[in-house]
């Protein structure tokens, strides 16, 4: 080794331990990336808070309805309410429809923000095989979603318990339907996260990915529910029940399945199928495209 010039100190070659790139190491790296961004941490916290808030609001509403016969009747005759079911789990899982927006944005952003900042080149220089990065991101976002949503549902269950008891709508997890609904809520949002990650990887642009996800999960269902309600067109009914959110959220519903919607697990399988297909497409393009 030659003597350093001036203040330049040499990196000591023999003392640096560099190990093989392995999936657990890539996973640990992706976890560091996830938890070191304020935006991701805040999105996760806000998702939980919103879910709990919705549960409290709905519980209070049900409590009011319990003592107001006209309101109870009105709710009972609403077809959407019927499909969703009217049990304690419906109340604590209600926030999923807003939670899915936050989760979808989070899932898309953990990959699109790397493209918009140029970080992706640092990432792929360290993990040139690329695919371990995608699977590690998938694991991080799915695991985080499961933990955050399970926690949110747990807290929602506890804080709404006294209100729901007085409304005569207790959460009963010994009821298989209610258990499926609570588990389905976690599963549905975890799948939405994976779906969003795939969309983000395919589109690479934050705005484009978020627009696509909002269109798929919010705008199209609203448009189609209006079209289906107004026209009874068979094709519209088909498209509607196969929309990712309309199909997937059946797994959370506790009411009887209406004719124009899928059975709970069939619906979830449709969403899972889309997600697997999109992830496969994302993996192929990630490997092929220039970073």
């Amino acid at each position: 080794m030659t003597a350093g010039t001036g203040t330049t100190t040499a990196p000591a070659p023999s003392t640096v331990t560099v190990r093989r790139v392995s999936f657990p190491r890539v996973l640990a790296s992706e976890w560091i990336k996830f938890r070191t961004l304020r935006s991701t941490v805040w999105t996760a916290v806000i998702t939980a808070v919103v879910m709990i808030g919705f549960a409290l609001m709905m519980a209070s509403l049900m409590n009011m309805a319990a003592s107001t016969p006209e309101m109870r009747e009105g709710m009972a005759s609403d077809p959407d309410m019927q499909a969703m079911g009217m049990t304690g789990t419906t109340v604590i899982t209600l926030g999923y429809s807003f939670g899915q927006l936050a989760i979808a944005v989070l899932g898309a952003l953990i990959v699109t923000n790397e493209y918009s900042t140029g970080m992706i080149r640092s990432t792929f220089a360290a993990v040139p095989h690329r695919l371990p990065t995608l699977w590690a991101k998938l694991l991080v976002i799915v695991a985080t979603t499961v933990v955050v949503i399970a926690l949110a549902l747990g807290i929602a269950y506890l804080v709404t318990m006294p209100i729901l008891d007085s409304a005569g709508l207790p959460v009963d997890l010994s009821d298989p339907t209610q258990l499926r609904s609570v588990g389905g809520c976690v599963l549905y949002l975890a799948t939405v996260a994976a779906f969003a990650l795939a969309i983000g990887t395919l589109l690479r642009h934050s705005a484009g990915a978020i627009f696509t996800l909002v269109a798929l999960f919010f705008v199209l269902p609203i448009i189609f529910s209006i079209v289906v309600g107004a026209t009874d067109a068979a094709w519209a009914e088909w498209v509607n029940k196969l929309l990712p959110s309309v199909a997937g959220e059946r797994v959370i519903a506790t009411g009887p399945t209406p004719d124009n919607l899928l059975e709970p697990w069939t619906g979830y399988a449709v969403l899972a199928g889309y997600t697997v297909a999109l992830l496969a497409a994302a993996a192929v393009t990630l490997k092929r495209r220039d970073a």
Partner: peptide
Amino acid sequence: HLQALATTHGI
């Protein structure tokens, strides 16, 4: 940033 990249190689 450095930690995230170092972790992939167990550095």
